[in-house]
Design a protein around this nucleic acid. Sequence first.
DNA 1: GCGACAG
DNA 2: ATCTTGTCGC
Length: 228
Amino acid sequence: MAYYRPYHPPADPLIVRDLTRQQDELRAHLRLEPLMAEPTLIAGCDSSFPTPETVLSVFVVLRFPSLELVEKVYHTGPVTLPYIPGLLAFREAPNLLLAYDKLQHQPDVIMVDGHGIAHPRRMGIAAHLGVLLDRPTFGVAKNKLTGTFQEPAPEKGSISPLTDKSGELLGQVIRSKDKVLPLFVSPGHRCDQATATRLTLACLRGYKLPEPTRLADHWAEEFKKELR
DNA sequence: GCGACAG
DNA sequence: ATCTTGTCGC
């Protein structure tokens, strides 16, 4: 019989236990608060895999709120960990940090491709990256990791909360375009839900994905070809 | 024991 | 994430 959903191979229990502990340590530094000031520069990032053993990470910086591209950089390195649900940051963050170091402009806030606190232990890659950089971040994911929600109305702009069993707010499920699957937006570090939601909506330009991640996605593909 | 499972 | 042609809906 075939599987109806992706099958996640069992991960090494020792690795999982250690990384989960590291995640809890980082979580102690997580701060959810409004931005210090209205952003002038917003970044987007994304990772792709040219080969199963190579990761290519991209960072783009756009002016806000005009959304014009200001800068784009990338960095490639070896893959050191397989994909494990809930531990994505340990697979992608190291290389993302190296790409971030190549930026000439310091963004005021970073939109990450993945969840912020909408994570089993409230430490999705957006929160993880934010703590390591001690910079404002929030996550925009295309799929749910954890939590439950009511399907938002089919019109662009419709929003419904993503909550955990105890009713805690984990993020907002946003319809970024008419009749397309919604996005999952949650704060990372030094950011709050209202800001994450507001900035995501302000970055929509007719596509399902907000400009920062859409452009990061685009350039990840371009840079990948450039390697051939 | 049975599902769920970012990228 | 990645592999991939045709095809359904606005």
